[in-house]
Structure formats: C-alpha cells, structure tokens
Design a binder for these strands. Structure first.
Lengths: 213, 213
DNA sequence: GCCGGCATCGTCCGAACGGTCGATGCCCGG
DNA sequence: CCGGGCATCGACCGTTCGGACGATGCCGGC
C-alpha cells in the first residue's frame, strides 16, 4: 500500500443509497478517505485503468443484469495487481463466497454487517490482511466441518437440471444415464439437503447458494 | 399527515449501511426529518404501537430469515391506520410488488433508484399520493398490456409456494384452499408459462423475473 | 341482462415421482 | 487387502402430480 496513514477507498455499488451510506460510515473515520464512487463493474475497471489510485475497493458482487459480474471484476483487478478488493454484498451464498475468494478477493462482508466491522475490514484489507465477516467465517467453517453433507459434482449436475425443470427421463438422456441412476442421485441429494421432493431440494439448494440465481 | 411542512420519516431496514445512506440522503432535504431507525419489522411495529408518530415509513421487504416478513408489517400498519408505507427493496419481482401493493403499500421503489426519486417518493407518499418507481411502473404496465398471459395475483401466490418446495396439499392448507383449487391455479400457470411441470414453471417464472431470486 | 374472466371445488385416471430394497464396479486410504 | 465413498443400474410399490372433464359463484363491461 502507499505506506501513508490514510486509506484511500473506492466504492463500487450500483445502489446510490448504499454508496451514500458507505461513504458516510467511512468518512466518519479520520484515517479513511473515499476517493471515488462508481456504479458498475465496467466503470470501476475503466477508472482503475485510467490511473485511479486506491488502497481498497469496496465491491458489490451484484450489479444489474447484462453487465459484467462482480466476480469478473475481482479477477481482473487482482490480475492487474490493483488495489485490495473487499467484497461487500447482500448474500451469504456459498457459491458467491467461494467464487469471490477464489478470484482473489481480500475479504468478504455482508451488507447487514455493523459499521464497526466494515471499518475494521477496510483497515485490515489495506494492511494486507484478510478480512472475512463473522457470518462468512461461520459459513466456511461449516463447510469444513461437514464434508459428508456437501453434494458431489454429479449430484449437483443432476440437481441443476432439475432446477431447470427437466424431468428425470430428460436428465437421464442429457447425462447419458438411466432413470434409476438419476433417481439414486436425487435420493442422495434429498438426504443431504433434508428435502422431501425435487422442488424442495431446488429451493433449499438456492437458499444455501448451491445453485446460481 | 401532520399538516406541518416537515415530513417525519421512519427507516426500517436490517442493513445499517443502507439506513445510514437513506438517512444521509433524506436529511439533506430541509423538509424531511428522520425520526427513527429500526432494524426489523417487529421493532417497527413495536415502536409504532409504543406511540411513535411519523408520516412515512421507508420499509425494506426483506429481513433476515425467521423473522416477520415485510409484507406482514405493511398489512399490520395499514390495518392500524398507521403512517404511509413506502416499500424500498432490492428486487423488482412481480410477486413482491403485487403482494406489497395489495397489502396497502403507498409506494414501491427499488434500492438502485437515484436519490432524487427517493426523495420525491417520500414527499408524494406524505402528501397521500401513490409513488411507484419507473422500473416498477414499467412492470405493472407490462402486465396490463398482456392480460391474458400474465399470472393473476392468486396464481403467483400459489407459484411462489411451489417455488419454496411446498406440496399441493401444504399449499392448500397454507392458503385455506382445497387441493383441487391449487391444482386448477397451477394448470393455468402451466398454460400461461408454457411449462409442463411445477419445477419447469418455477424455472420459467424465475427466468421471467416473476419470482424473486 | 348476459358473457367472460377469476376463484373456488369435485372426480377420474395415467404418468411421473419418491422410498426401499437390491446389485456391480471403481478407486482411494488405512 | 479390505472397507467405504462414489457412480452406475434394476425392480417394486405407494403417493403425488398433471390432464381432462365438469360445476358453482362473483364481479365487471358491453
């Protein structure tokens, strides 16, 4: 980082109200300075390519449809050796968290985090540390503690097709399996998710962030 | 309304950052005053029952799991002749919009709305007018233009429960209907969405933005 | 006043689904 | 080498679901 005592922050969120809130919270700290606000991932990358200097980027993962995803932005920023990326998003879905961390995010916070956590995370990210919110930490630990509960790749593949509305027969054809195998996979999925039916399994998987969307 | 020139506003949102943002935006207006902030629907109702006076409530529909839903809060506030309710939420799903409006919300805005729209909506709601954001208006107009194709509120209600993984019997009990009626609604849904099954209908509805998620 | 859309309820039946038992083969780790 | 997780397949049976009828009542528009 700059070595200076002041942390320069860029806010990247498509909600003006959230940006205002983040700015208000951060500027209450004497050692934090908001140097820019952007409303899309494209704008963020453009500004960084244009020479914008910062220590930390507060990045929302969800932007409007049809645009560049937040995770792609993380990958790009990390690849170009840009500022530390602190993901601040609404959802604590496993898929999002894993994708962001894998892409190189320095931290992952939820928007419902208290303000002091937010500020602490910004300072930590600027200092080169990793900053995961308590809720996020709990989620990651939960995954490690219960490896037998996680769906296998094959089971997830089947479940994804179920979520698209395919019938067991269609899934069997799509994956070159017999109906019996599809059913077996689904039985395991129901067991692991504690769901009594295919629709319930899809709902639960969505809730846990195992499926995109 | 108080008849005074100043609009008293209550902020109800479980995200501290969003509350801060809303407060900052609104307090920049001389004729708007934020008289309270709450982080849950229960707290909101408790404060109102406790004598909190306000002209407008800015209410998020999504609160943490296990809690009272935002729509229930709307119903309760309207039933007790409380302040005007302005829903400010993240999603523009038909299900949410229809449910909130039906429950008696005075307006419906998205969180990605520019700040001037937000302020205008607060003033409109305080003046007894209805305030729907442009994106919300577009959605409702789209429904009017294609009346034969759009799902009715009841059909959407049933479909939402299907999306949660409920069985027809459970849905029937939840909505005080017979299984036959639930099935009839679903047949209409399948017909309108061109879906051959419940899971396919849910997938298609998600694709079209009829369900949140 | 009548017609059409909406919501409600009922029955019958075939197809899809879920639950339970079984089996085989593979590969990895103790 | 042997147990266990994973993937694959088969058969049986009860339940749920979907499809196709019909029926009633309400409301709003022509």
């Amino acid at each position: 980082m700059t070595g200076a005592a002041v942390v320069d922050v860029v806010l990247a969120d498509d909600h003006p109200v959230v940006r205002t809130g983040l700015r208000a919270v951060l500027e209450a700290e004497p050692d934090v300075r908001v140097v820019a606000e952007v409303g899309s991932a494209e704008e963020l990358l453009a500004r960084l390519r244009g020479g914008l200097r910062a220590d930390v980027v507060l990045l929302d993962l969800q932007f409007g449809p049809g645009r560049l995803g937040g995770v792609d932005a993380v990958r790009e920023i990390v690849a170009t050796d840009g500022p530390a990326v602190l993901v601040v998003t609404t959802y604590d879905a496993d898929a999002d968290i894993l994708a962001a961390v894998e892409a190189g995010a320095r931290g992952y916070l939820l928007k419902d985090a208290p303000t002091h956590e937010l500020v602490a995370a910004v300072r930590a990210a600027a200092a080169g540390e990793v900053a995961l919110g308590p809720a996020v930490q709990r989620r990651l630990l939960g995954r490690l503690r219960s490896p037998g509960t996680a769906l296998t790749a094959r089971e997830l593949e089947v479940l994804a097709l179920v979520a698209e509305g395919r019938t067991n027969d269609e899934i069997a054809h799509a994956l070159f399996l017999s109906r019996a195998t599809v059913k077996t996979h689904l039985v395991h999925v129901y067991d692991k998710l504690g769901a009594p039916s295919r629709t319930a399994a899809v709902a639960e998987a969505r809730r846990r962030g195992l499926l995109r969307g």
